[in-house]
Computed example of a mutant assay.
Amino acid sequence: MGLAPTGLGTSAARFFLRPESPAPQLFCPGPVRDDRALGEQVNRAVVRWAEQVGIYPGRLDKLRTADFGRFMMLAHPNTSDPDRLLAATKCLVAEWAADDYYVDEVSLGADPMVVGSRLANLHAVVDPAALPRRYAADHEEHHRLQPISVAFRSAMEHLARYTTAAQMGRFQHQMAILFLAWTQEADWHANRRTPPVWEYLVQRHLNNYLPPMILIDVLGGYELSPDEFYHPRVREAFTTAGDAAVLVNDLYSGKNESETDHNLPTVLTAHEGLTPREALLRTVEIHNELMTSFVTLAASLSATGSPNLRRFLADTWAWLGGSREWHATSGRYHDSQGEDS
């Protein structure tokens, strides 16, 4: 099923380091495809959509440069349908915008003291709350004025064209997990606390890349059954892949984060006395350990699972390669496209 590594990427850590000594390679595949025209088509469409729903006003150029359409094109080589890719990209951008507006970016109104309330109210859009008639109008009026709510509602309406009820349910469940993780991050900000490494990794387990990855079979036009998707060993394999993927984000995003933000290298530096360079290398090692665990689990599951499970795990491997390529080249993290990591 193609889960064995077939060409390790160069080290993401090397982007941050002077080349006086070699760094360990990042254990991650390269992308299966890079259809620039398809990615640009999806990216143009998602920027137009962002303008329509009202997120990132005055910042659409930065959104365009981030190239989220290319991200989904790279991560989902199992489809060339621009509309399916656009549905996934809308969900991704809605998630990223919620993080920016509610958790990270003070200039966009983020405030750790109200993160919990904002996310609880937003989840009533993601998993719609049926309020008593007397209060439903107030609820609707509140969300009509919230661009993040409008974005999520619009993105999920598009996504619903392609999901089964079970696939939509798992997406809603993953959003609840993500929102819980963001409230934990807000606690760190509010209390000016740098978490110990183990606690940071727990938060990253909840705040990993499963929200976009969970659409792998949706975009592929098949469904991994709930019995297999939620089987403990499958869940372990899939979440381990998501945990590894988000550490690639930690490696590439660090130089763009504010001093109050946390990533694994800064937490390692704070609590284990490592130099910044040592912390980057340790992060690569932790990422590689997680990837090795995923490959081992996936190989075992593929030997006994259904054809759809084998396909899902192979598509997960492809997703990881596409994600790494986007992080290595996106304008969100680099001044110009095409920089090698």
Rank of each mutant, 00 (worst) to 15 (best):
100 D>W: 07
101 Y>M: 10
102 Y>E: 08
105 E>D: 15
107 S>N: 01
108 L>S: 01
109 G>Q: 02
110 A>Q: 06
111 D>K: 07
111 D>E: 08
113 M>R: 08
117 S>G: 15
118 R>Y: 00
121 N>S: 05
122 L>A: 13
122 L>D: 12
128 P>F: 01
132 P>D: 10
136 A>T: 06
137 A>D: 06
138 D>K: 15
138 D>E: 15
145 L>C: 01
145 L>W: 01
147 P>K: 09
148 I>C: 15
148 I>R: 03
149 S>A: 11
150 V>I: 14
150 V>N: 10
151 A>F: 10
151 A>M: 07
153 R>Q: 10
153 R>G: 10
154 S>Y: 00
155 A>K: 04
155 A>C: 05
156 M>Y: 12
158 H>M: 09
158 H>V: 08
161 R>K: 11
162 Y>H: 08
162 Y>E: 03
165 A>S: 09
167 Q>K: 06
170 R>L: 09
170 R>V: 13
172 Q>I: 09
173 H>Q: 04
173 H>G: 00
173 H>T: 05
175 M>N: 04
175 M>V: 02
176 A>C: 01
176 A>F: 00
178 L>K: 05
179 F>W: 07
180 L>F: 12
181 A>Y: 03
182 W>Y: 15
183 T>Y: 07
184 Q>L: 14
185 E>I: 13
185 E>Y: 06
187 D>I: 09
187 D>Y: 08
189 H>L: 12
191 N>V: 14
193 R>T: 15
195 P>D: 10
200 Y>C: 13
206 L>T: 07
208 N>G: 11
208 N>L: 09
209 Y>R: 11
211 P>N: 01
214 I>R: 01
215 L>T: 04
216 I>Q: 03
217 D>V: 03
224 L>V: 06
